[in-house]
């Protein structure tokens, strides 16, 4: 007669094991590969391997070998030499390019982050500065920076500096806005407590506002990790900075007709770079915010 007791969910957000997350990503990748190759069934181009040949029943041109190469063709191109008679494989070649782009992005990421934090600290302490400049900080975000990219390159020259400036520009805005919010986030009572200790503005900033703002900062940094890489890739284009991934994307885009797998490989490495940088920031966040409830949010 007695019914089983009502189950109470554990307090706090659900604890998902690392394995659980890993399994989800694995499932996603496998699912993507299955969908990819399934799409090839309606691509129309014949599947030819070692003398074996099979013709798909339908012909949908976007998904032919030109539009969507087989996964194994891309893998084959990636492990092959990056150009005729080269020792280096395309994958290693692209990884080195990615590292180059990442360095530009990382410099912009750090500069933009520092600029954003400094601006936020200034705005939080001065109403006048806030009213004079915050509207333009917000407006600057509605301007598609990519339009400015060619001019920045003309202005600062065909060098890494231009790329770093673009990456910085894309980084500073989210950090500024998040830090204004974060530095204002302490409980007013905590601020009053600090004032009752006769703490100076500087002490309040370092001991109270800054620690309180860390979760906000990391939320912004996770966004800007990707944004800085977008900035670097875009910045490399007009300046013809040949060391980076942006250049490879342009180069392989021009070779797309002869070998589409190369562009797909470059895009894959760009995706890998974005996810890696994001994950790096996330790892630092987990370490810095250890023990704080905010750290558990994805």
């Amino acid at each position: 007669m007695r019914r089983s007791p009502e189950v109470i969910p554990a307090a706090g957000p659900p604890v998902r094991s690392r394995l659980g997350r890993a399994r989800i990503y694995l499932l996603f990748v496998v699912g993507l590969l299955v969908v990819w190759e399934a799409a090839k069934f309606i691509g129309g181009d014949p599947w030819r391997y070692f003398g074996w040949e099979w013709r798909p029943p339908l012909k949908f041109n976007v998904l032919n070998d030109q539009g969507l190469p087989h996964v194994w063709d891309i893998v084959g191109t990636m492990i092959g030499p990056y150009r005729r008679n080269a020792d280096q494989s395309l994958f290693v070649y692209l990884l080195l390019k990615a590292l180059y782009t990442w360095r530009e992005a990382a410099i912009g990421f750090v500069l933009g982050g520092a600029l954003g934090m400094a601006l936020a600290a200034a705005f939080v302490h001065s109403q006048l500065l806030e009213r004079a400049f915050v509207p333009y900080v917000v407006a600057s975000q509605t301007i598609p920076i990519v339009a400015l990219a060619p001019m920045i390159v003309f202005f600062f020259g065909n060098n890494v500096l231009s790329v770093v400036i673009i990456a910085t520009y894309l980084t500073f805005f989210p950090v500024t806005i998040a830090m204004i919010r974060g530095l204002r986030s302490p409980d007013p009572r905590a601020l009053e407590l600090m004032r009752s200790f006769a703490a100076s503005r500087r002490t309040i900033l370092w001991k109270l506002r800054l620690p309180a703002s860390l979760p906000y900062l990391f939320t912004a940094l996770k966004i800007t990790a990707t944004a800085s890489i977008v900035g670097a890739i875009i910045g490399e284009g007009p300046g013809a900075i040949q060391g980076g991934l942006g250049w490879s994307i342009i180069e392989f885009n021009q070779q797309y007709i002869t070998n589409p797998s190369k562009l797909w490989g470059a895009i894959f490495v760009a995706a890998l770079l974005g996810v890696s940088f994001y994950s790096l920031v996330r790892l630092v966040e987990l370490r810095v915010l250890r023990g704080r409830p905010e750290a558990s949010a994805g």
Partner: peptide, 13 residues
């Protein structure tokens, strides 16, 4: 009327 809750650990309250 009785009301029991199952705690996350497996115990009943």
């Amino acid at each position: 009327v009785d009301k029991d809750f199952a705690l996350p650990g497996g115990a009943t309250m």
